[in-house]
Design a protein around this nucleic acid. Sequence first.
DNA 1: CATCAGGGCCCTG
DNA 2: CAGGGCCCTGAT
Length: 322
Amino acid sequence: MIVLNNKKTLVIEPKPPYNFNATIFKPSHYPDPLSKYEAGKYWFPMRFKNKVYGIKMESLGTINKPKIKISISYKSNLSKNEMKEIIDELDYRLEFNRDISEFFRRFKNDKVLSPFIEKWYGMHGSCTHDLYGLLMVGVFLQNATVRRTVQMTEAMLKKYGTKVMFDGKEVYEFWKPEKMIKASETDLKALKVGYRTKLFIKLSETFVKEGIDESKLRKMPVEDAKKELMKLYGVGPETARILLHEALHHYDIFEHVSPWQQKIYSKLLFNKKLVPTEKIIEYVNSHWGEWSALATNYIWEDIFWRRKHGENIPWLEKEIRL
DNA sequence: CATCAGGGCCCTG
DNA sequence: CAGGGCCCTGAT
């Protein structure tokens, strides 16, 4: 367990429009102990350059005049340079300065998208984890229902993760891959992660021994990055999609739809029970081109938001089996 | 009770 | 390219 008692704060002004709540909190995500969210506030741990920090973000502004107070909790010392690097990293992970105005310009009158854009104006993609962390999430999601994913995530974090306490909150950060390499298979299996045991260990070995360079992956064209990710053992089209969209922030790729997503997109886009995935992919790409992933994110998160806020959507409930 | 598919992926034939 | 196996769970 790590307790972080020191704190430095600064205020940043993201490029407008920046919708803090919609960017930070994605209702479609499964509940996890990796962060805490309240309207306008967000806490999460960040392992960065071999140290763990506690990040608190508070929205002080509006969508068109965004302003965020960032507090960095740390253990013993935090240099000016370190602080700058952390802010730069957050800038990438949360898209403080990414210009997505073209998306709004192009689609504000789009027949399908316009209501979603109106409702969620200024929403970006975001991911507080690094590539390795999100990869672990991706593995938890494989071949499992939500309840099982939640259970595996909690069990693994409790045993191998780092509990981080700061600002009166308690959250978990993922283990270092170095630690996972040394984990015993018997111990892992006891956490009921099944075949994923092998994946956790193999993937961690790859990260440590081959030194997967996240910064390099961030700069690659999307298809190249995809090719690299698919080389990872246990990473197929769906896990690669998650990493490309969320950790690497690619809006310009939409070429895989898993079976449960297929049912949901069929309903949302065609109001039909089951449309072939090729049709869905073709539809999305031809309408929204290089903004496909952001466009579908607006539609996707909206329905989950409505569900979370008490709207009864029977056909959706059927697909989100807990 | 047994069987089976799942918010996939790998390997084999 | 199709199909079986992997782990566990809840649905049938």
